[in-house]
Simulated assay, not measured.
Amino acid sequence: MALFIDTFINKIDKKGRISVPATFRAALANQAFQGIVAFPSFKYAAIQCAGMDWMQALTDRMTQVDLFSDEHDDLTATLFADAKQLPFDGEGRIMLPESLAAHAGITEAAAFVGRGSGFEIWEPAKLEAYKAEARRRALEKGRTLRQAPGGPGGGA
């Protein structure tokens, strides 16, 4: 599965195209679909993005939820109903649909932020406010990540 790190801010051209960061495109290079899958975040004014393999993994995990249950219906409506396949053009750009741009409040520029197995697209000022709040919460709540034995920082 692809790994996405770092933050990049790119401008949207007059035709609504925006360049996906080269490192993100490289992480997706081995995918059958040459592009990204994007859908409105149900938690933030942002756009959730990943490769088709990530979407397939979500589909596979949906088998753990009872078919036709409210939970299944809520999750599939949230994850799949508004998802868009956005192919890369010859220069590594995508067309950002108006519905997604409006959801995130994106007009002239967008911030691509790595989130590990996926990434998000934000309006740059909203991203900075979110990151400041996330850091404040992490510090206030003493957030930590337990190291796996033998993993980075976990010893041998």
Rank of each mutant, 00 (worst) to 15 (best):
D53Q: 09
I47Y: 00
W54R: 06
S99T: 12
D89C: 07
D82E: 15
T63C: 00
S117N: 13
W122T: 09
E108M: 04
D82T: 14
K84V: 01
H103D: 06
P87A: 00
R93K: 08
G92S: 02
E120I: 01
I47P: 03
L127P: 00
E108V: 04
E91Y: 14
L58R: 07
K43E: 13
L58C: 10
E108W: 04
F119M: 09
G90M: 00
L79A: 08
I94N: 02
G105S: 13
T78Y: 00
R61L: 07
L86D: 05
E108N: 12
A45L: 09
A57W: 04
E91C: 02
M55K: 02
T107L: 06
I106G: 05
K126L: 15
V65H: 01
E128Y: 05
M62C: 05
E71N: 14
E123T: 12
K84E: 08
K126T: 15
D53S: 12
L86F: 09
Q64K: 14
F80D: 07
M52G: 06
F119T: 09
G92L: 06
Q56G: 08
Q85I: 04
V113P: 00
A46R: 03
A104D: 11
T59M: 02
E123P: 11
W122Q: 08
F119E: 05
I47W: 03
D74R: 09
T76E: 15
L58Q: 12
D66E: 13
G90C: 01
L86I: 08
G51A: 07
G105C: 11
M95R: 07
T76Q: 14
S69A: 05
W122P: 04
E71C: 07
A57F: 03
Q56C: 05
D73L: 01
K126R: 15
L127Y: 14
E91Q: 15
T78M: 04
D60F: 05
Q85E: 15
D89I: 07
E71H: 13
F80T: 07
R115S: 14
D66I: 09
E108C: 01
L75R: 13
L75P: 02
G92K: 07
R61T: 11
E98W: 10
V65I: 12
M62P: 01
K43C: 02
G114V: 15
V113C: 13
D53I: 04
V65Q: 03
E98Y: 13
A110W: 09
Q48P: 00
Q56E: 14
A102M: 11
T76R: 13
S99D: 13
A104K: 05
T76A: 12
Y44R: 12
A109K: 13
M55S: 03
A110Y: 10
Q56T: 11
F80M: 08
A77Y: 05
L100P: 11
R61C: 02
G118R: 02
